[in-house]
Amino acid sequence: MLKKKYAQPLFVILMSFSMSVIMCGVVVAVNTGVGEGFLGRWFYSWIFAFPVALIAAFTMAPILRPFADKIASKD
């Protein structure tokens, strides 16, 4: 079991992973179809997308969290 202090970084990693998997699948399917070679095209796209998503999430989370806290109700 991981310590509580690793919960936020783990969340960012898991969210980046899952969103990049889903978004790459959808974009590749829309652009090229779900025919022969789909999994190869999806995986090739995901290899590039996951690191970008991970860096973006770790970079943007600390910047956007204060805005979300301001917008969200304190109730």
Rank of each mutant, 00 (worst) to 15 (best):
T59E: 02
E36V: 13
W46N: 05
V34I: 13
G40V: 09
S73R: 06
K3N: 01
A68P: 03
A7R: 01
F38I: 15
V26Y: 10
K3I: 00
D69E: 15
V28P: 12
G35F: 07
F43S: 14
F67R: 12
A72S: 10
F11Q: 03
F17Q: 02
R41V: 07
T32E: 14
I22M: 12
V21D: 05
V34D: 03
F67L: 15
V21N: 01
L64N: 10
P9C: 00
M1W: 07
V34W: 06
D75K: 12
G33H: 03
F67Q: 13
G40C: 07
N31E: 15
M19W: 05
G25D: 03
M15T: 09
L14T: 01
K4W: 04
I71V: 14
A56W: 01
F58W: 08
F11I: 03
K4F: 06
Y44Q: 13
F48A: 11
G40S: 14
L14Y: 01
F38W: 13
I63G: 02
A57R: 04
V52S: 03
A29W: 11
R41Y: 12
V34M: 15
V34K: 13
A68T: 13
C24R: 08
I22K: 01
V34P: 03
A72D: 05
F67H: 12
L54S: 02
K74N: 10
P66V: 11
A61W: 04
T32I: 12
I55P: 05
S20F: 06
F17G: 06
V27N: 12
K3P: 02
G33V: 14
I47Y: 04
S73G: 01
A29N: 01
W46Q: 09
P66Q: 10
A49F: 05
T59Q: 02
L10T: 04
L14A: 06
R65H: 10
M23F: 12
A61S: 11
M1E: 08
F43R: 10
D69V: 14
F43C: 04
S18E: 04
F43Y: 13
F43D: 03
K4P: 07
S16R: 02
F38N: 13
V28Y: 10
K74Q: 09
L54G: 01
K4V: 06
P66M: 10
I22V: 14
F67P: 05
F50A: 05
A49W: 05
P51C: 09
S20E: 07
G37W: 02
